[in-house]
Design a protein around this nucleic acid. Structure first.
Lengths: 180, 180
DNA sequence: TCTATCTGTCTTGACATCGAGATACTGTGT
DNA sequence: ACACAGTATCTCGATGTCAAGACAGATAGA
């Protein structure tokens, strides 16, 4: 079957989403399930990426969430210092979560808290030397592994892919005010 | 700045990942952070999708995890029945999680458990009529919303995108045996 | 100055997930 | 028959996250 359009045939390797879409076409031929071809793949790939990152960071004794916070600080540049509010906007988590994360990173000696001299409600969180060393090592390692994951695509294909993804992302990053 | 290569210029709208990559280039000019252009976008987009799905399902009184289980059963076709083991492989969660989910879906009257007549260790989980109605409505709604999210891309672009994503996904779906 | 409102951080309680292990049954080989 | 490895499900304890709200301090208007 599906002989009526030679679109998707030929012996291209198929993934779980191909099977999923085929099952839906069988069960709900009345619906157009094309959107799943893109968006289910995005979700599933993200899930696999999460696991791959977990494995990568294990060697550096870092959890994914620790890495997320530390990289946000590292990216900020000298003196590697941000407010909790800036951190939660960068990492897309809520304020309760961020407080908890900072507590644990402080206990682990990777970040430091100090009162904001210009706003007495506020706090500033900064990287310790140990934190900076850990994140720099882990980040270099992560990039190596991510390059491997992308090895199946040529340079131009990667650029095409990131361009298409950007188009989907722009509306979110424009209108979204982040989590509170 | 960044005048030395006209790559990424022109006034293309930019997203958070463009800013993130720019920050890394400033801080770590020694590293090639190109992989982030693809993979950070995948992660962030998945995160946004998760929220969008949450909003979509709220109207149907469904949580994301409920939808995942119910659709797996719905896709299976008549009589909409699978083992917990098959369900956890389909949804990429652990067995403890799946037991818990089935408990709660049973309490909500959306699925039913019965002993497997052919394997007395086993159980079979099936959709109730209420469960099937709920998932069918929610799925149609989800597809409408996902189509809107993809409105920024033409048909060919969507196909190109799903093809590129499939290339990245195949290695995972081939070697991965799922969560236990 | 006083008051109302806003903002930034932290606290609390509920909850879904994971990982490891317990339990029950199957099927194979001796 | 019997033991043993394999498989399927469930139980339990620990953990990370969220949502809502408490609280202190900032900010603007009268």
């Amino acid at each position: 079957m599906t002989l009526h359009h030679a679109d998707n045939d030929a012996e291209r390797p198929s993934d779980e989403v191909d099977r999923l879409v085929a099952a839906w076409r069988q069960e709900r031929p009345d619906l157009d399930v094309e959107p799943l071809q893109v968006l289910s793949r995005v979700s599933r790939l993200a899930r696999h990426l999460d696991r791959a990152r977990r494995a990568a960071f294990a060697e550096h004794h870092l959890e994914n969430w620790e890495f997320d916070v530390l990289t946000a600080l590292r990216r900020a540049g000298e003196p590697y210092e941000l407010s909790p509010g800036a951190l939660l906007r960068a990492t897309l988590v809520t304020s309760g979560t961020m407080t908890n994360r900072i507590d644990r990173l402080t206990a682990a000696g990777l970040v430091r808290r100090r009162p904001d001299p210009e706003d007495r409600r506020g706090v500033l969180v900064s990287l310790t030397d140990a934190g900076r060393a850990r994140v720099d090592n882990a980040f270099a390692d992560l990039l190596r592994r991510e390059r491997d994951l992308l090895a199946g695509l040529g340079k131009h294909e990667q650029q095409a892919l990131s361009g298409l993804l950007r188009t989907l992302l722009v509306p979110f990053d424009a209108t979204d005010t982040g989590a509170h």
